[in-house]
């Protein structure tokens, strides 16, 4: 029997700066959509519906990073309204591609280089950061985009008041489960060892090296990965760029403190 809406937890799904891939993935759970809407009272979900109500929430799922003043205010407001905030996707969790230069303290200079003297009238842009730069985040669900099974299982657990149960090891573990031949051993620059699992090692299954799009695994040994790639003949700037690509806050300190940086 269908539950009445007032028995259900109130959920809001929000998108800040990002490709909207995580919200799209939720919408793409076609077989489970009825279950999702039946299990929870989805109050706000811009990509799915127009009658959005932005009031008190039990759980807010937030995608994307904060890159404008307005988004910052929106995020602070979400935090105020929601009992539990879950960061979904790499941009929300760690900053994503738009936070690739977090290690450089030259955001304004870079901004000027790209946008020149264009006047920003809509809202004031700020350096792109993950949402935990501004608010307390209760749970993180990384991914680029998030993975369907993991999302459904996490969503279900959070609805029942349980924390998410996610793989905490690197991509290499799933990669071995899929019985791939290690790309690093073939001198291909793969970031599997420093990147958290959950994607099912999908790139390496197709013979492409891991680009790190799920963010750093908790115990990432960055120094070893860096030196290993150097020893395989990749140059310093190449490795630095490759590592910086997705991991934002996770890697900014490491890259900012690297010795021998000429620039």
């Amino acid at each position: 029997m269908e539950k009445e809406n007032n028995d259900k937890l109130k959920i809001g799904i929000y998108e800040l700066t990002g490709c909207a891939g995580d919200a799209l993935l939720i919408l793409d759970c076609e077989k489970e959509l009825v279950d999702i809407f039946n299990a929870a009272d989805i109050q706000s979900f811009l990509m799915a519906k127009s009658d959005n109500i932005d009031e008190e929430l039990d759980i807010a799922l937030v995608e994307g990073s904060v890159s404008t003043e307005r988004e910052k205010e929106e995020l602070l407001d979400i935090r105020k309204r929601a009992k539990t905030v879950v960061a979904i996707g790499i941009c929300s969790c760690f900053g994503g591609i738009q936070a690739a230069f977090l290690d450089q303290k030259e955001w304004e200079k870079n901004f000027k280089k790209i946008y020149g003297d264009t006047k920003m009238t809509h809202t004031k842009p700020v350096q792109s950061k993950p949402i935990d730069a501004y608010i307390k985040v209760d749970y993180y669900l990384p991914g680029c985009p998030i993975e369907k099974e993991q999302f459904l299982s996490t969503f279900n657990r959070i609805l029942r008041g349980n924390p998410p149960e996610l793989y905490r090891f690197p991509v290499c573990v799933e990669c071995k489960w899929n019985e791939n031949d290690c790309l690093l051993n073939k001198d291909i620059p793969c970031l599997g060892p420093i990147t958290r699992a959950g994607c099912g090692s999908i790139c390496i299954n197709h013979n492409l090296p891991c680009v790190g799009c799920w963010g750093l695994v908790e115990e990432a040994n960055l120094t070893s990965e860096f030196q290993l790639l150097q020893e395989k003949g990749f140059d310093y700037d190449f490795i630095k760029k490759k590592m910086a690509n997705f991991s934002g806050t996770g890697i900014a300190d490491f890259l900012g403190n690297l010795k021998g940086d000429k620039k």
Partner: peptide
């Protein structure tokens, strides 16, 4: 690198973990 590969490819390793899927 704590990548777990040595254990995964070892023919005598046998440890496992369990996880609920609701």
């Amino acid at each position: 690198l704590a990548c777990g590969s040595c254990t995964n490819v070892c023919p005598t390793c046998n440890c496992y973990n369990i996880m609920d899927k609701q």
